[in-house]
Amino acid sequence: MNITLKVWRQKGPNSLGAMETHKMTEVSGDMSFLEMMDVLNDRLVREGKEPFAFDHDCREGICGTCSMFINGEAHGPGRNVTTCQLHMRSFKDGETIHVEPWRSAAFPVIKDLTVDRSSFDRIIQAGGYVSVNTSGDTQDANSIPIPKHDADEAFDSATCIGCGACVATCKNSSAMLFVSAKVSQLSLLPQGKTESSERVLRMVDQMDIEGFGNCTNTGACEVECPKGISLTNIARMNREFLSSTLTSK
């Protein structure tokens, strides 16, 4: 099939960007979106032009590296997929496809479609862990039974891949879904419960410092999240933050 691409070109963090148009022919429906971008880049190199810089790594939907805003949606039109798992059969012959980087003050553009998401790392560093040493001399793994339901729910929250689609999608660039998923995972498990109160305060603080916007409960993040992380995580974090601020000394 034939496709018209309009792709964001931006030289560096402080340069102005603009959309650039490229025609693609003989696109196969079995190609992933990134493979289609590979073909475009291959052509650009052969023509002596600079290819588009975009982030990608595992290409199987789990590393969370790929990050394109395609046709007005994070990771494009599919549901529960990342850009690398989005296939060209999701588009129509002759369609015009807009490709942009994630846009958020907390995710500055590095080049073209590549953004800097280290703000997410700093939020995890603020408290997204259990303060346990790695000596291995902890208690036996089976010494605390965890209700299957809690373990499953914690797992669901833990499946967040940190891609930033929630931020990219949210009209306010809010990182609540990302932060709340980690807060939820750890507070649902007895191992993480002990410090859940300090954790939520510190992580929310860091989130605010990074310049993410506020959650206005539009629910767009949940819809666009490639891993289907639920809004109940946000509610849980709201609850935990409220009780933690009221009870912290």
């Binding site: 960007g17 942009e100 846009r103 958020s104 003050a105 660039s173 993410f212």
Partner: peptide, 8 residues
Amino acid sequence: ARPVKYVV
């Protein structure tokens, strides 16, 4: 929080 808007 989003100084540059999306085109689409």
